[in-house]
């Protein structure tokens, strides 16, 4: 474990708790893409299948359990409890356009052609594009609530910090995983546009609004 990965994990945890808190407190999931949340749920479930078989540490197991639980709770709030506030007219990104190619790629490009490894690879590829429906929704509505932009900033920062973690591990542990690194770079690049808007607007107290 290194500081970059630890801060990255905490930023990730902050992001998903922030979103859950926002939906619960405002009793509304307006501006939140349910499709992205479904894909994140899929990411955690396919990646943490080894939750009970491969014990790494208390921290590792606890965080995995929290990620899965919070993802499921968020999906429940969006599609069941606060279903009336779900903005399906703006959450129109076709998930199958992401899941099918990612599933195919996971079969073609992976480290080991075993079920667990292919599911892990699928999870890594899917995570890199899972935010697209959310970013697409913001581009359609033209704006995002401030709390939602904080969620996106924390979520985008987590994988950016992981990239630093991978550089660190390469130089100090001789460890690197090209699949995770490439997917992590793609994922972070997708946030660049948002990061720019966040820094130039939200940090100056303005609302996040995309140029119409």
């Amino acid at each position: 474990m290194n500081i970059f990965r630890l801060v990255g994990d905490l930023s990730h945890l902050l992001a998903i708790l922030l979103l859950l808190w926002k939906i619960w407190k405002t009793r509304s999931c307006a501006g939140v893409s349910g499709k992205s949340q479904i894909m994140f749920g899929l990411v955690y479930i396919t990646r943490y299948l080894d939750l009970f078989t491969n014990f790494i540490s208390i921290y590792n197991t606890t965080m995995k359990a929290i990620f899965i639980a919070v993802a499921i709770a968020t999906i429940y709030l969006i599609y069941f409890k606060f279903k009336a506030t779900y903005d399906s007219n703006h959450d129109t990104f076709r998930m199958e356009f992401l899941i099918v190619p990612v599933g195919g790629l996971a079969f073609l490009v992976n480290h080991d052609f075993t079920a667990l490894e292919i599911l892990w690879t699928f999870s890594i590829y899917l995570e890199s594009v899972a935010i697209l429906p959310q970013l697409f929704m913001i581009s359609k509505t033209g704006e995002a609530e401030t709390i939602t932009s904080h969620y996106l900033f924390a979520l985008g920062s987590y994988r950016a910090l992981y990239i630093v973690n991978w550089v660190y591990r390469y130089y100090f542990e001789g460890f690197f995983d090209l699949i995770a690194i490439v997917a992590g770079c793609v994922q972070t690049i997708l946030y660049c546009d948002f990061f720019y808007l966040y820094v130039t607007k939200v940090m100056h107290g303005k609302k996040l609004s995309l140029p119409a």
């Binding site: 990965r5 994990d9 080894d50 790494i56 590792n60 995995k64 542990e173 690197f176």
Partner: peptide
Amino acid sequence: EIQQKKKDEL
């Protein structure tokens, strides 16, 4: 070695 190590990340 890479396989084993990879699984320690979230």
